[in-house]
Amino acid sequence: MTIPALNIGGLSIPTPIIQGGMGIGVSLAGLAAAVANAGGCGVISAAGVGNAEADFKSNFVEANSRALAEQIRKARAATSGVLGVNIMVALTNFAETVKTAVREKIDIIFSGAGLPLDLPSHVPDENGPRLVPIVSSARAAALICRKWIANYNRCPDAIVVEGPMAGGHLGFKPKQLDDEEYALEKLVPQVVEAARPFAEQVGRDIPIIAAGGVYTGADIHKYFQLGASGVQLGTRFVATHECDADIAFKNAYINASEHDVQIISSPLGMPGRAIRNTFVEHVEADGKKPYSCPYHCLKTCDYTNTPYCISVALTIAKNGRCDHGLIFAGQNVHRVNSIVSVQELMNELTDEYAAAAATD
């Protein structure tokens, strides 16, 4: 059985796979364009996108806006497929970043790491990008729908629900991460039901996209059976030739064992999932506070009390000095054992989906 296409606000994504937005340069134009060319939705992460700009520290907002525009244009030149941008609510330059994405005519804006309650205020034209919040609960999904309809006469074009097995920052309390009540299998049907009355109110579908721990085509089939219309994957796309991270970063994924994955306390005040390495061990033992904050890039980061700058730590690892930086990864990273092309990965996922669907 062929995997059904995903429709987001009139945009058709032939293969209903969203490539997760991975920040500080892991998912840029190269990866996003490759995924879009393979029939999915390629996503550029706006977090730290300008860290290679000469004026990144001295002119943080403008450097990021300039770099994001360049990445969108570069991706658009390489594909006619669907492209998105992931913009964290926690970014201090959130509004400016959204406006840049709108100016560059991105297809979809994905937004999480906080509740994007005012996102539509920065995208007043309904002919602009489709808006897709990322949530970790049915309650958050309903709140966003209710606020958007009341304040902007607008509803999300889709909703991503991200479970506790995701990589990076997690929208859960530490004690909830291993609680079966918060498993993605429980969350997807809950968010589907929470979105239903709002979809009926506005007279159109609000597709739900499952994320966080989706690894195989059989997983995709499982979440479709639970009501999802699409999935989002991050970890698996890191181990592709087209991923924009250094080869050493990709190899860290390949070499990781199940015991290497752990939950850290992020400077953002949220739990995060990372690969244990020398950097993590040092922070646990006697982490050193930074002398100053290079950019103040995140609203919730108290740089005066945090043991390290997360933006710097992620950048160092992404650039290949993995033992000296932070490597975010999903719970299933230990299952990654080789680097493949994006097209090979997409083919594998769709073939596995068809095999699982054939057993219904």
Score class of each variant (00 low, 15 high):
residue 330 G to V: 05
residue 320 G to V: 01
residue 315 T to C: 02
residue 324 H to D: 15
residue 317 A to Y: 03
residue 336 V to L: 14
residue 335 R to Q: 14
residue 336 V to T: 08
residue 300 T to M: 05
residue 311 S to D: 06
residue 303 Y to D: 10
residue 331 Q to D: 13
residue 319 N to D: 14
residue 307 P to M: 09
residue 326 L to C: 05
residue 305 N to L: 13
residue 320 G to Y: 02
residue 330 G to E: 10
residue 316 I to Y: 00
residue 304 T to P: 09
residue 313 A to C: 04
residue 314 L to I: 02
residue 318 K to L: 00
residue 309 C to V: 03
residue 320 G to K: 04
residue 305 N to C: 10
residue 304 T to F: 08
residue 304 T to G: 10
residue 321 R to K: 15
residue 333 V to W: 04
residue 328 F to N: 04
residue 309 C to I: 11
residue 312 V to E: 08
residue 301 C to N: 15
residue 318 K to E: 02
residue 322 C to D: 10
residue 307 P to E: 01
residue 318 K to H: 06
residue 310 I to E: 02
residue 325 G to H: 02
residue 318 K to N: 08
residue 315 T to M: 06
residue 337 N to S: 11
residue 329 A to N: 09
residue 312 V to C: 03
residue 305 N to I: 13
residue 318 K to W: 00
residue 323 D to F: 01
residue 303 Y to F: 15
residue 337 N to A: 02
residue 325 G to V: 02
residue 305 N to D: 11
residue 337 N to L: 00
residue 308 Y to V: 06
residue 321 R to M: 14
residue 325 G to K: 02
residue 319 N to L: 10
residue 330 G to L: 01
residue 308 Y to P: 04
residue 325 G to F: 03
residue 339 I to V: 12
residue 319 N to G: 08
residue 306 T to C: 11
residue 332 N to P: 05
residue 318 K to M: 07
residue 314 L to E: 10
residue 333 V to D: 09
residue 306 T to H: 08
residue 325 G to D: 00
residue 310 I to C: 09
residue 318 K to D: 00
residue 310 I to Y: 06
residue 303 Y to G: 03
residue 314 L to D: 05
residue 301 C to Y: 15
residue 303 Y to A: 07
residue 327 I to A: 01
residue 302 D to P: 12
residue 314 L to V: 05
residue 322 C to V: 13
residue 318 K to Q: 05
residue 322 C to E: 10
residue 304 T to R: 15
residue 326 L to A: 07
residue 308 Y to T: 08
residue 328 F to R: 11
residue 316 I to A: 00
residue 332 N to Q: 14
residue 325 G to I: 06
residue 323 D to C: 04
residue 306 T to M: 12
residue 326 L to W: 14
residue 317 A to V: 00
residue 310 I to T: 09
residue 311 S to Y: 11
residue 338 S to G: 05
residue 317 A to N: 01
residue 301 C to V: 14
residue 317 A to S: 04
residue 304 T to E: 15
residue 316 I to L: 02
residue 336 V to S: 03
residue 326 L to S: 09
residue 322 C to Y: 15
residue 318 K to P: 05
residue 334 H to P: 13
residue 329 A to G: 11
residue 331 Q to F: 15
residue 332 N to V: 02
residue 334 H to E: 11
residue 307 P to I: 12
residue 330 G to P: 08
residue 337 N to G: 09
residue 333 V to S: 05
residue 316 I to S: 01
residue 306 T to E: 12
residue 339 I to Y: 06
residue 300 T to Q: 05
residue 333 V to C: 10
residue 305 N to Q: 15
residue 317 A to F: 07
residue 307 P to K: 09
residue 313 A to N: 01
residue 322 C to Q: 08
residue 333 V to K: 07
residue 315 T to I: 04
residue 331 Q to Y: 13
residue 305 N to E: 12
residue 336 V to Y: 07
residue 313 A to P: 01
residue 307 P to W: 06
residue 307 P to G: 03
residue 303 Y to W: 15
residue 309 C to A: 03
residue 331 Q to V: 04
residue 316 I to W: 01
residue 318 K to V: 10
residue 306 T to R: 12
residue 314 L to R: 08
residue 334 H to V: 01
residue 314 L to Y: 12
residue 334 H to A: 08
residue 304 T to K: 15
residue 328 F to T: 07
residue 335 R to W: 12
residue 301 C to Q: 15
residue 307 P to T: 09
residue 304 T to C: 09
residue 336 V to N: 07
residue 329 A to W: 11
residue 323 D to V: 01
residue 320 G to I: 06
